[in-house]
Amino acid sequence: MLEDLQVGNENKSRQVTLFSLFYAFLKMGSFTFGGGIAMLPLLQVELVEKNNWLDHQEYADCLMVAQSTPGPIVVNLSLVSGYRLLGLKGGLSALLGVILPSFLLLLAIAIFLWQYRENPLAHAAFRGIGPAVVALIAAAAVKLGKNVLFGYRSLLLLVLFLGGLIVFNIHPLYVIIFGGLAGFFLPSAKDGRREE
């Protein structure tokens, strides 16, 4: 199966090299704002439409793996698609490309700018950004929830988990573990829209 994944890219329009892979992910890592998720549509353009390195189905497969394994989605996606194109070295080049910009930029911010957070102008601006950040997170929860939660079992689990996290301060990793166990053991009669 490993061989299957790595062949398949012979009649692609543009040859993929370790450097071109690194560079494609570097561009994505440098110019997409708003977190990793904002990169996904642009990555699709870069990998599928522009360079023809992957077809739509292959990209969808990579994305599915990236979303269903732990860790930042873009990190997983870079590893998986880089691996599919050029093996382990490809995965690592893509990974390096995607994390290097934010690592260096945030390092520069931590070194040179973090101390100015206490400056009155910056402080006032950040205090105003706070409520906007809350709204962005809350909207993400609602929008995502509408798309993936079906049936009252999901809602019951959601309420249980939220209560545990907010009222009882349980460690978030238990929520992940219990969520996985509940999905594994409980019959999924009600939230079956995905299984249909």
């Binding site: 269903s68 706070g130 950040v133 809350v134 997170i137 809350a138 993400a140 929860a141 995502l144 929830g145 993936v148 939660l149 999901s154 809602l155 689990l157 959601l158 988990f161 939220l162 545990g164 996290l165 907010i166 978030p172 929520v175 992940i176 219990f178 969520g179 996985g180 166990l181 509940a182 999905g183 594994f184 409980l186 999924s188 939230d191 995905r194």
Partner: peptide
Amino acid sequence: RTLSGLYPAVIALIGAAAVVV
């Protein structure tokens, strides 16, 4: 099934982050 069991957990985590922040 296991992964779909994670959906409520993930939404709860995002909701909790909104509350904490």
